[in-house]
Computed example of a mutant assay.
Amino acid sequence: ILQDRLFKNPKVEIEWNHTVEEILGDENPLGVTGVRVKSTADGSEKVIPCDGFFVAIGHAPSSELVKDSLKMQSGGYVWVEPGSTRTSQPGIFAAG
């Protein structure tokens, strides 16, 4: 169902057979400006302009490994300090 919705969204362009090489951005003001991707078919690279970048790999968080070590939120998500990726343990960061 979600895949069908994605394919039908006119605002979405699928980049098949590419890997993310780098998230590009500026420091002043702080923000994302694009993403550099590489073709898995021929190795060519291109930059896709964008204002944000989100990684999503599923509906359920994959936090089983750290559930006994880090502060958790409801639903199995790792707690992070608001506005950052810092977790309840110094030196451990979360993304996703």
Results as ranks from 00 to 15, higher is better:
I1E: 12
I1P: 06
I1F: 09
I1K: 05
Q3R: 00
Q3F: 00
D4L: 12
R5Y: 13
R5S: 13
R5H: 05
L6D: 06
F7R: 12
K8H: 08
N9Q: 11
P10Y: 04
P10T: 08
K11V: 10
V12S: 07
I14G: 00
I14D: 04
E15M: 11
E15T: 04
W16T: 13
N17G: 06
N17A: 14
N17E: 15
H18G: 07
H18Y: 15
H18A: 14
H18M: 14
T19K: 13
T19M: 10
T19H: 11
T19R: 11
V20A: 15
E21Y: 14
I23S: 05
I23V: 15
L24N: 12
G25F: 13
D26F: 08
E27W: 13
P29C: 11
P29K: 10
L30I: 06
L30N: 04
L30Q: 06
L30E: 08
T33I: 00
T33F: 02
G34K: 00
V35N: 00
R36A: 01
V37H: 04
V37E: 07
K38E: 01
S39M: 04
T40M: 08
T40F: 04
A41Q: 14
A41Y: 14
D42T: 05
G43C: 10
G43I: 13
E45S: 03
E45W: 05
K46P: 08
V47W: 10
P49Y: 03
P49T: 01
D51K: 09
D51R: 10
D51S: 12
F53G: 07
F53C: 14
F54M: 02
V55M: 01
V55I: 02
A56F: 07
A56S: 09
I57Y: 00
G58N: 02
G58A: 02
H59Q: 03
A60K: 02
P61H: 05
P61F: 06
S62C: 01
S62I: 01
S63M: 02
S63V: 04
S63T: 10
S63C: 06
E64W: 10
L65P: 03
L65R: 03
V66I: 11
V66G: 03
K67T: 14
D68N: 14
D68F: 04
D68T: 10
L70M: 08
Q73T: 13
S74F: 14
S74I: 07
S74V: 12
G76D: 13
V78N: 03
W79L: 15
W79K: 12
V80H: 05
E81W: 01
E81K: 06
E81H: 02
P82I: 06
P82F: 10
P82K: 12
P82E: 14
G83D: 09
G83R: 06
S84A: 12
S84W: 13
S84D: 09
S84E: 14
T85I: 05
R86S: 08
T87W: 10
S88A: 13
Q89K: 14
G91C: 09
I92F: 15
I92H: 11
A94K: 05
A95E: 09
A95K: 03
A95Y: 11
G96R: 03
